[in-house]
């Protein structure tokens, strides 16, 4: 087993399998890493290409801050509403039993509707709640109520209602496994030790589900915060949320007087999502001692 003369070749041979990953890494590098790095780098560039903090400063302008705030309101409220209603629906489904038809149907439908963001969703609500939407016209003719209300559907309020349509099913999808994870033995052990139904929920089920619930809500937040297509189609005036402001920054030459503001706004989105993910990681770490 003399190895001295072969060691160089062997080292090469050991590295050779890693070469098989080159196509993938190259692809990811070009189409994911380069764009992301471009966003970060260009955020600090002026129109002349020089280093500047002007773009970042422009994020502090009232218009940009209001938009960010609206984005956070939209993502936050739909995460909480979607999280609560989704958890309720998930519980209704799980308590119907593991083989029930209700469960199968709800999960299948949720799988579709959670992906149902984008353009078709906007038109679904235009067809329902728009000026000549089916529900709007039905309520207008009887009992004579006007739910059109001057077009709230096409503003922030409308987005909240519409986003819940995919947030609730997404919550069902991610929360059903958490509910399934509640073992029968835990309930029986609690009952056996003297717990009433209420005490079981108060002392066992709720504390056990809280991390999963909060984690799911954070996921819903990130999901709504990043969503673009539905809002792009639905919103006709102004740029109530950050993704739409980015669109204007990309399509009109100069916005708020900053050439590369679009990049800075994109960076802002990365930061917000990163904060959410960090919260999520902290949450996991706090509970990892007892979670499997």
């Amino acid at each position: 087993m003399s190895s001295t003369h072969a060691s160089g070749g062997r080292r090469l041979a050991a590295a050779a399998p890693a070469l098989g990953l080159v196509p993938f890494l190259l692809f990811i590098g070009i189409f994911l890493v380069v764009p992301t790095v471009t966003v970060v780098a260009t955020s600090f560039q002026g129109a002349d290409g020089g280093l500047t903090l002007d773009n970042i400063r422009a994020l502090g302008s009232e218009a940009a801050l209001t938009t960010l705030w609206h984005s956070i309101i939209l993502a936050g409220s739909t995460a909480i509403i979607g999280g609560a209603l989704g958890a309720l629906l998930a519980w209704l489904v799980v308590s119907a039993g593991p083989t029930s038809r209700l469960r199968r149907v709800t999960l299948a439908v949720s799988g579709v509707l959670a992906q149902f963001g984008g353009v078709p969703l906007a038109f679904a609500f235009i067809a329902t709640l728009g000026f000549s939407g089916v529900l709007t016209e039905a309520l207008r003719s009887w009992p004579g109520v006007d739910i059109w209300g001057g077009g709230w559907l096409f503003g922030l309020k409308g987005l909240i209602v519409v986003y819940c349509y995919f947030q609730i099913p997404l919550m069902v999808l991610v929360f059903v496994p958490a509910l399934d994870g509640l073992r029968v033995q835990w309930r029986e052990a609690a009952v056996n030790l003297g717990a009433s139904r209420w005490q079981y929920w108060r002392h066992v089920a709720v504390p056990l589900l809280t991390p999963a619930f909060l984690g799911s809500v954070l996921l819903l937040f990130a999901n709504a915060f990043a969503a673009y297509a539905t809002a792009a189609v639905l919103v006709s005036q102004g740029n109530p949320i950050t993704p739409l402001l980015i669109r204007s920054a990309l399509t009109s030459e100069v916005l708020l007087g900053q050439a590369n503001l679009g990049f800075a706004l994109a960076l802002e989105m990365i930061v917000v999502v990163a904060v959410v993910m960090t919260l999520y990681a902290l949450l996991l770490r706090r509970t990892s001692r007892w979670m499997r």
Partner: peptide, 27 residues
């Protein structure tokens, strides 16, 4: 069942995972 005052040991995995050992026993 919750009024019967019986102590039960299950086959497995019946400890409450979010509670410490002492809190489980004190439950």
């Amino acid at each position: 069942a919750n009024k019967r005052d019986m102590g039960m040991v299950f086959q497995a995995y019946s400890l409450f995972p979010h509670l410490t050992v002492a809190d489980n026993v004190a439950f």
